[in-house]
Simulated assay, not measured.
Amino acid sequence: MTEIPRLDRQVCFALYSASRAATAVYRPVLDDMGLTYPQYLVMLVLWESEPRGVKELGEELGLDSGTLSPLLKRLEALGLVERRRSGEDERRVAVHLTSAGRSLSAKAAAIPQRLAKSAGLSPRELEQLRETLGKLTAALHNAV
């Protein structure tokens, strides 16, 4: 007899639930910063290195231009980023942080520690989890 699938045994549901719970922990800090979670992800990439091309941002975040463009438009309206066309290639648009966007990184510095504290996991356990999730993501992308 075939076993009936159970919700509590599904990896996909555990990942979904963990993602929602992590985002909920981030929400008060992000609300204070005036950012949504997807906007925060864009800012993380730009804080690492900027300027970044729109296409490059989309590839790094796994977002298509239809999703990324409105995010960038909102971040630009908030005065956190500027989009500029390349002088060498008009088709290429680079995203630059404004001074306000750069200074926001100081507020964001506490977010990873907040998650770690809320999760009750050691730094090593969190690193192992991140590595495992990275392997899972890569394997699933290769399977598609």
Results as ranks from 00 to 15, higher is better:
Asp8Val: 09
Arg9Ile: 02
Gln39Ala: 10
Leu41Ile: 02
Asp31Ile: 04
Pro28Met: 06
Pro51Thr: 09
Glu50Cys: 05
Cys12Ile: 01
Gln10Gly: 01
Thr36Gly: 10
Tyr37Pro: 04
Gln10Trp: 09
Ser49Phe: 10
Asp8Asn: 12
Leu44His: 03
Gln10Thr: 04
Gly53Ala: 00
Leu57Trp: 04
Phe13Asp: 01
Arg9Val: 01
Glu56Ser: 14
Ala21Glu: 05
Met43His: 03
Arg9Leu: 13
Pro28Lys: 08
Ala14Leu: 08
Ala24Lys: 14
Met43Tyr: 03
Gly53Ile: 06
Leu30Tyr: 09
Ala24Trp: 10
Gly34Val: 09
Gly34Trp: 12
Glu48Arg: 13
Ser49Thr: 09
Leu57Asn: 03
Leu15Ile: 11
Met43Ser: 00
Val42Glu: 01
Val29Thr: 13
Asp32Pro: 09
Ala18Asp: 00
Ala24Thr: 14
Cys12Glu: 13
Thr36Trp: 11
Arg20Asn: 06
Arg9Tyr: 06
Lys55Thr: 14
Met43Pro: 04
Tyr16Arg: 13
Val45Thr: 08
Ser49Glu: 11
Asp32Asn: 14
Ala24Met: 10
Lys55Leu: 11
Leu57Tyr: 01
Glu50Gln: 12
Ala22Gln: 13
Ala14Trp: 03
Lys55Met: 11
Gly34Asn: 09
Glu56Lys: 10
Tyr37Glu: 12
Leu44Pro: 03
Gln10Lys: 08
Leu15Tyr: 07
Val45Asn: 00
Arg52Gln: 15
Val54Met: 12
Tyr16Asn: 07
Tyr40Gly: 01
Pro38Cys: 01
Glu50Val: 03
Val42Thr: 00
Leu7Gln: 10
Leu35Cys: 07
Asp8Lys: 05
Leu7Pro: 06
Val42Gln: 03
Val54Leu: 06
Thr36His: 06
Lys55Cys: 00
Asp31Glu: 15
Lys55Asn: 08
Ser17Phe: 13
Asp32Tyr: 14
Arg52Lys: 15
Leu30Cys: 11
Tyr37Arg: 10
Leu30Ala: 05
Arg52Cys: 04
Tyr26Ala: 12
Val29Ser: 15
Leu46Gly: 03
Val54Arg: 07
Leu7Cys: 05
Met43Trp: 00
Val11Thr: 14
Gln10Asn: 14
Pro51Asn: 04
Glu48Asp: 14
Val25Tyr: 12
Asp8Cys: 07
Gly34Phe: 10
Val25Lys: 06
Phe13Ile: 05
Gly53Asp: 06
Tyr37Asn: 09
Asp31Gln: 15
Ser19Cys: 12
Thr23Cys: 05
Asp32Cys: 09
Arg20Ala: 02
Gly53Val: 00
Ala18Asn: 04
Pro51Val: 00
Leu44Cys: 13
Tyr26Ser: 14
Pro51Met: 06
Lys55Val: 13
Ala22Arg: 15
Val45His: 01
Tyr40Phe: 15
Tyr37His: 15
Val25Asn: 07
Ala21Lys: 01
Leu35Asp: 02
Leu44Arg: 15
Asp31Val: 10
Asp32Ser: 15
